[in-house]
Amino acid sequence: MSGERGAEWLEWRVTVPLELEELAAESLLRPPFTGVEVVGGGVVRTFARAELLDDATRAEFDAEARAFGATAVEWRPYEDRDWEAAARATWRTFRVGRLCVGPDGAAPRPDDVPLRLEPGGAYGTGRHPSTRGGLLGVQRFLAAGETVVDAGCGSGILAVAALLLGGREAIGFDIDPNAGASTRDLAAANGVDGRLAFREGGFETVADVCGVDGVAANLYYDLVERHAPDLARLLRPGGWFVVAGIRASLETPVRDAVAAAGLDVTWRWPRGRWVAFGGRKGGG
């Protein structure tokens, strides 16, 4: 569609009673319109190339919409732009500790570690404080040659980061059906796909795993509370853990659950409404 970018389009915005929203959306979807967005509150909008709609045709559409039950109709000029390029232009490399996360593998300092990533279909791009906390925690605890489990891996970013930082092997698991493809793609883009295994599902998928060196878990607080014993079970004595994605207001019960599972907190990273923390399993 690149040939159409920059062309003049018309946006047709129609307001109907809420109960007619779906009908209106369906009614608007006809040539020359290209699709419908249900904006909400009874407002639907669609788009067409301006040269395909003369005044008479627009008046005809308006009359039809009003007969259909529309309470307001409005035509707006719309100049299309290359939204893909615009999104890409704002996706620049950013730093999280030694990691430089971005699309181009840039690593300006000698000890920087580039992590190639573009936003995609699974959560975890490194831009949100929940993921940044996880990335910093991994850098804090990971030693070269260690094995790591990424619980609720999403895009796989924590597991891939661990491998790029010197980890030996990693397992990522997630119930999100998009996570598998995203994790595999991210691992391949960073050349660590031979050392990262993905399992679709929850903690039951790693029931056969134990004695790993580190576990990273960017999970909702209730999942950490419920599965703190599973995090501990996965670790060898003295192994490290990082918990991220916890709302600061919910930190206390999560910390209590982690402590009850025999995990000692030695590191904490608060950022706005979010907090990450980590430490080691006792007995090491």
Binding site: T34, V36, E37, V38, T46, D80, R81, W83, A87, E118
Partner: peptide, 26 residues
């Protein structure tokens, strides 16, 4: 929420502006 023809989505409107304003990988 979008209604688009199956198998024929493109970056043109309405997909482009709806997703692009949020920086989504269109």
């Amino acid at each position: 929420k979008l209604q688009i023809p199956a198998g024929q989505a493109t970056p043109a409107p309405p997909v482009g502006p709806a997703l692009g304003q949020h920086g989504v990988n269109i």
